[in-house]
Write a protein that binds this DNA or RNA. Structure first.
Lengths: 106, 106
DNA sequence: AATTTGCGAAACCGAATGATTGCGCTTATA
DNA sequence: TATAAGCGCAATCATTCGGTTTCGCAAATT
């Protein structure tokens, strides 16, 4: 069973849950109310999110509050960092320079 | 068939392919040499990456060079942006302040 | 002209995924 | 104390996923 952040955020419902509890921890029931699936389905998502440390839980009586572990999200950002140079246009600029040189040659 | 960036980068092989062609476009055969899977399997991955616009192709005779579309990666970054505040520690600092207040009360 | 090379598409297969349903446990409420 | 509420877990099921194998086609090579 693969359990990494990338697989966790692949599911749209899971991304919605992450967003939902990002700034306020919530119980499974409260989360489930925001979607048209069962509480058990949400519970399963929360288990996956917990298993890859994207989410922490805090028990309070019979209720369990789930909270986002923001730090873990950094992993995705770290991976993305490798490509940031590309989309920030530096490589496009390089392309332009090369094209210009080509054109001058003609 | 869901075809979005998040689902595309969920697979580790696909992430490796993305990294591989990020700075130099490559043919399916050349890519396949870097993994222990068949060219056809790589082709399937490239199809998925193409379908969600993460990858562009350029034909040259019978060879097809695949190239990363860096811009598309921005979508992930954009989604991540929502959480950046959290892991950058501002919320953790808030937590610390609250804990300190609690301790002082005791 | 015959053969090899590079490629995508289709058929197939076992494993994983996401959802539902039924269950049992613990905690709160009547 | 009996009942209800909140939760996780296990079984089940249809669907998707990632891989291989086989095939056909166009472009190179001989």
């Amino acid at each position: 069973m693969r359990r990494d952040v990338f697989q966790a955020i692949a599911d749209p419902t899971r991304r919605a849950i992450i967003l939902l509890i990002a700034f306020q921890s919530m119980t499974p029931n409260a989360i489930a109310e925001h979607f048209d699936t069962s509480r058990q389905a949400v519970s399963k998502h929360l288990r996956i999110l917990t298993e890859c440390n994207l989410v922490k839980q805090e028990q309070s009586g019979r209720e369990i509050y789930y909270q986002l572990n923001g730090t873990k999200m950094k992993e995705v950002d770290k991976w993305l960092e490798q490509f940031r140079k590309i989309w920030e246009g530096r490589f496009n600029e390089l392309d332009n320079i090369l094209s210009n040189l080509k054109n001058k040659k003609k």
